[in-house]
Every structure is written in structure tokens, then in C-alpha cells.
Lab assay of single mutants.
Amino acid sequence: RDLEAFAERFKQRRIKLGVTQADVGSALANLKIPGVGSLSQSTICRFESLTLSHNNMIALKPILQAWLEEAE
């Protein structure tokens, strides 16, 4: 599925960039996405391991996609 593929790709890119889950969570606040502050390390972990609810995964995907584009 698309979400699973993105979560795996996100994790691989994050590791390759040398960024921790906690770093991603705090960096999201710097993107200044309306309504989005920082996220906890555990939320990033649960996204990568696909243990969040489907609706949460869908909500987080564009936010994490934006971070990934900014980081690369």
C-alpha cells in the first residue's frame, strides 16, 4: 500500500540523512505548517512502524513528506 511504502521510504531517507526520530519531530515546528507544531519521537516511531491508526497515518503523511522534501 502507498502509506506502507511511504513509511518505509521515509525511514530509510531519515536514517541516510543521519536524523533521529526526535530531530524530525522538533524540526516539524520549523516548517511553520498551519496547525502543526512539533511531534513526539514516539509518534514518528509509530508512523515508521505502521502502528498508528490509518487516519493518523493519512494525516501525518503530507506533513512528513514536507519535512523530507525540506531535508533533502
Rank of each mutant, 00 (worst) to 15 (best):
K11R: 11
A29S: 14
L39V: 14
V19L: 13
Q41H: 15
D2H: 04
T20V: 00
K32C: 09
S49T: 12
I33M: 09
L50S: 14
C45F: 12
I15K: 14
Q12P: 00
N55G: 13
A5V: 13
N55V: 13
L28M: 13
A27E: 12
M57C: 07
K11I: 08
V24S: 01
R14T: 02
E69P: 00
Q65A: 11
K61V: 14
T51N: 04
A22C: 02
N56C: 15
F10R: 01
T43V: 13
G18K: 04
R13L: 08
T43I: 15
L64Q: 02
K16M: 15
I44D: 02
P34E: 12
I58R: 15
L68S: 03
S53A: 09
R1M: 06
V19G: 00
S53Q: 11
N56V: 15
I33N: 05
T43D: 10
K61G: 04
E8Y: 14
F47D: 01
G35V: 07
A29Y: 09
A27F: 10
L60D: 03
V19I: 09
G25S: 15
I33H: 05
E70N: 02
E8T: 08
T51S: 14
E72A: 03
C45Q: 15
F10Q: 01
Q65W: 04
D23I: 01
F10P: 00
I58W: 09
P62T: 04
K11Y: 01
R14I: 03
E70Q: 13
T20C: 06
I63H: 15
G25L: 12
F47R: 01
I15G: 04
V24N: 01
Q41I: 07
D2N: 15
S49Q: 13
D2F: 05
R13P: 00
K61N: 05
N55S: 14
L17H: 00
A7Y: 04
S26D: 11
A27M: 08
S38Q: 12
S53C: 04
Q21N: 06
Q41T: 15
E70G: 06
P34Y: 04
K61T: 13
V24Q: 00
D2P: 07
I44A: 00
A66L: 07
A22P: 04
R9F: 06
S38A: 13
M57P: 00
L68I: 14
P34K: 13
L52S: 01
S49W: 04
G35T: 06
Q21G: 08
A29I: 06
L17N: 04
G35Q: 04
A7E: 04
G37R: 11
R1D: 10
V19C: 14
Q12L: 11
S38L: 12
I58L: 14
P34D: 08
A59T: 12
A59P: 02
I58E: 07
G37D: 08
R1L: 06
I63K: 04
K32F: 06
V24A: 12
K16Q: 13
E8S: 12
K32M: 08
G37H: 15
A59K: 12
I33G: 10
S38G: 11
R13H: 10
A22Q: 12
S38D: 07
R9N: 13
L28G: 02
R13C: 04
E72D: 05
K32E: 14
V36A: 09
A27P: 00
A29R: 13
E8D: 09
A29P: 07
I63F: 15
R9C: 14
V36D: 07
L50Q: 15
D23G: 10
H54E: 07
S53H: 05
I15Y: 04
K11N: 00
L17T: 07
N55R: 12
K16F: 12
L68W: 03
G18R: 05
E70I: 09
F10M: 02
G35R: 09
P62V: 02
H54Y: 13
L28V: 10
R13W: 06
P62Y: 01
G35K: 05
Q12G: 05
S40K: 13
L28A: 03
V19F: 11
I44C: 03
V24Y: 00
Q21W: 08
A66K: 13
I58D: 03
N55P: 12
